[in-house]
Computed example of a mutant assay.
Amino acid sequence: MDLRVQGTVPADPFLSAVDLFETEYELDLPVEVHVRDDPDERIWTAHYDDYHTLNISRQAATSAMARELTLHELSHMARYEEEHPSHTQSTEEALYLALAGKSVERRKLTHCYQIANHMKDIYADDITLSLAPAEKLLYFLESQLAAAVAGTPGSPPGPNFERISPASDPEITAVNAAFALALLERHDLLPDGHRLYDLAHAAADDAPGVDLGEFKRRFRSLTENPTESDYRKALVDVTRAYAVDSGTRPGQAAD
């Protein structure tokens, strides 16, 4: 694989990710790694006709998760090159099909894009988790959910929580919890009684209009090789379940 790192950061995590990835997969197009200074944009991938770009913040590129984050993005590139429906389906088209004629809050519409990304992540991580140990991912998902639950209005922080954001949205936090459980259970990586279950139920308690079990089932049961039609239907259905069927918090009107 032709991967070139542009930026003054150690290349070792990127090269290590490539070594792992190439044990089972390969990319036809070269990859350009661009290191960004904005810490809020952790990592994202873009695809072009003759190359991929992996954009990563300097903070993420020098973190303990750099190899795992890179491997995850290489997995997205593989799904894109194989034209997997999860990576070719237009999110905008699916949202239009799901929400035509409906009045939806602006915040929920934004969340629908995040949910669509979760579905892409499920398929990318089917590759990632076949190649690398899951310990770091499990800890990462646990810490992210703990921070979000601690930042949810009305949820007092426990002894191991740090309230980092007063703006955490309870409903999307509950969906994010369902995604984390589904991803790890899909690969039999979550031990019984793990703290992530307690965090997920705390998130669900803060969002009574969101059915944690339903969203977990939807994410976990995504078929490995869906047809374009099957994947579009799954994305439309989960969008409706969140934006239309889940309850609106008191005091918030639709736009």
Rank of each mutant, 00 (worst) to 15 (best):
T62I: 02
L3Q: 03
F161T: 07
L235V: 00
E105I: 00
T223C: 09
I164K: 14
R106F: 12
G193A: 05
T248S: 09
Q144G: 10
S143P: 01
S221Y: 08
V9W: 04
A60L: 14
L199R: 08
E26V: 09
D211R: 02
A132N: 09
V31F: 05
D255M: 04
H72W: 05
Q252T: 09
F21A: 08
D121S: 14
L138H: 11
S103L: 02
F161G: 14
D245C: 04
D192R: 10
V104G: 00
L15G: 09
S168E: 15
P191G: 03
D188F: 11
R240S: 01
D38N: 15
S155C: 13
Y197Q: 00
P30N: 10
D188Q: 13
Y242R: 00
M77G: 04
P39G: 05
G151C: 07
T23C: 07
M1S: 14
A61V: 10
H84A: 00
K108C: 00
R195L: 07
D126V: 07
M77W: 07
L27Q: 03
S103Y: 00
V33C: 05
L129F: 15
E83S: 15
Y48H: 15
E82Y: 07
A253D: 07
V149S: 11
V238W: 00
K233Q: 15
L69C: 11
N55I: 01
I56D: 07
L199V: 07
Y242L: 01
Y139I: 09
L71C: 07
Q6E: 12
Y123E: 15
P170Q: 05
E92Y: 04
P30H: 12
D198C: 05
A241C: 01
P153L: 03
R186V: 05
T239A: 15
F219R: 00
L145T: 02
T173V: 13
A11N: 05
L95S: 00
P159E: 14
E22K: 09
R186N: 07
E68T: 08
S75A: 15
G158M: 08
L27E: 03
T173Q: 04
Q89C: 13
L71I: 04
T23P: 03
T45V: 12
T239C: 12
D255Q: 06
R4D: 05
G193N: 02
A167G: 07
